[in-house]
């Protein structure tokens, strides 16, 4: 199996999905802020959302760059960045003030993507440790 290809396909999907995710999450936060008066930690929620957005952006760029140019450091950093991003997405699913059903769905997809990306990212790091082949 071409892990590099799998990883790139996942990142490609994620790069588009992340846009949808960010737009929907920000939109839903605005809706929640307008409609639910009993939000207790809205600032925390929104702060974590912004952090997740930034981390996710860097993660996808780094991972794609590392994968396509076959360098291991960006991929490694990207895999490590996945962990806080995953934690943030899980926060939206489980711990935030009001988790809407739509949020539940999109966060679930995002968690799945990130989980598979971690696995494939580690897998595709392994062949890079060997000497590259040239012809």
């Amino acid at each position: 199996m071409n892990t590099s290809l799998t990883f790139e396909v996942l990142l490609y999907l994620n790069s588009y999905y992340f846009g949808l995710f960010a737009v929907c999450e920000i939109g839903m936060n605005v809706v929640k802020y307008m409609n639910f008066p009993d939000l207790k930690h809205f600032s925390t929620d929104f702060g974590i959302l912004m952090a997740v957005c930034v981390i996710e952006l860097f993660r996808v760029i780094l991972a794609r760059k590392g994968n396509l140019t076959e360098r291991k450091w960006p991929v490694l950093v990207a895999i490590f960045l996945t962990i806080p991003s995953l934690a943030g997405v899980l926060y939206f699913m489980i711990w935030q003030s009001h988790a809407l059903r739509f949020e539940y769905i999109i966060c679930g997809i995002q968690v799945g993507l990130q989980f598979v990306e971690i696995v494939t990212g580690i897998l595709c790091l392994l062949p890079f440790c060997k000497t590259p082949e040239y012809y």
Partner: peptide, 8 residues
């Protein structure tokens, strides 16, 4: 072509 699209 699939590989070409994603990996170049």
């Amino acid at each position: 072509r699939f590989v070409q699209y994603f990996l170049g």
